[in-house]
Amino acid sequence: MDVPYTTKPRSDTGLYNAKLGIWLFLASEVMLFGALFSSYILLRVNALEGTWPHGLLNIPIGTFNTAVLISSSITVVMAWASLKLGKFNHFKIYQGLTILCALAFMVIKSVEYKDKFTHYEVWFNDHEKKSIRGHIEVPGEEGNPWFMTHKKLAERKIETIKIHPDPKVTVASGKEAHGGAEAHDGHGDHPPVQEIKVADIKRLSAFVPAHSTYFAIYFTLTALHALHVMGGALVMAYLWGPGSKMWKTDPERFTNRIEVSGLFWHFVDLVWIFLFPVLYLL
């Protein structure tokens, strides 16, 4: 039983089924990410004056990742164009490059995530004192601990920890902040290591979702985006590998599949085009 218009477009709509299907799906995706962007704005305008963090993400890495994703967008469209020209070998190369770009993006993203999980902010019971950001040393842990919290410190009856504060950097919006990401590439003067009594700590959190609404929305948006990248990469890997047999039996339908998966991929790219400035730069 074959459903009509899987390959040839229907004459009155000019569309084949999958193309309409993917656009409908993308419309719902616009609403999904749109709702999250709206949440971002509302959380930001809802934040108390001066509490919205700036400059905690690594801009060079983010820029590089943007370039990676943009490159994958051109390769994916070239893969489709190669099929249109009947050059299956070129398709294989471009599609392969796209998948590599997707993998590179994911690897870079995980490195960024790891950095955040081991980077801390400490707030004090004394409201006058500003919070400190940096890497911490906790007795009984080697190197930078992951996911440490004040609760865990209290449970382990640890009395003091050491913090290596980040150097001060001036960031994008012109506001001064304790540098985050750019701190550990050695620029700037490192302030001296401080010892902090756990009893003085009101709250200690790594740069994890629970840190603040900023990191909450950052992780939600980027993780959801990363899931899309992985999903897209899986589909494209299938179409690059076993799925590409269809080129021999039904080249037109296979070209359509590449077009449809490409549309999805461009959408993922498009989301990132907004995510990058909104989360990293503003």
Binding site: S73, I74, V76, V77, G262, L263, H266, F267, D269, L270, I273, F274, F276, P277, V278, L281, L282
Partner: peptide, 18 residues
């Protein structure tokens, strides 16, 4: 400005790649 540049980029991707 950042949103404007992002919109232009988005237009290029949506308009031509898609």
């Amino acid at each position: 400005l950042a949103l404007f540049i992002a919109s232009v980029k988005a237009f290029l991707v949506a308009g031509f790649f898609m």
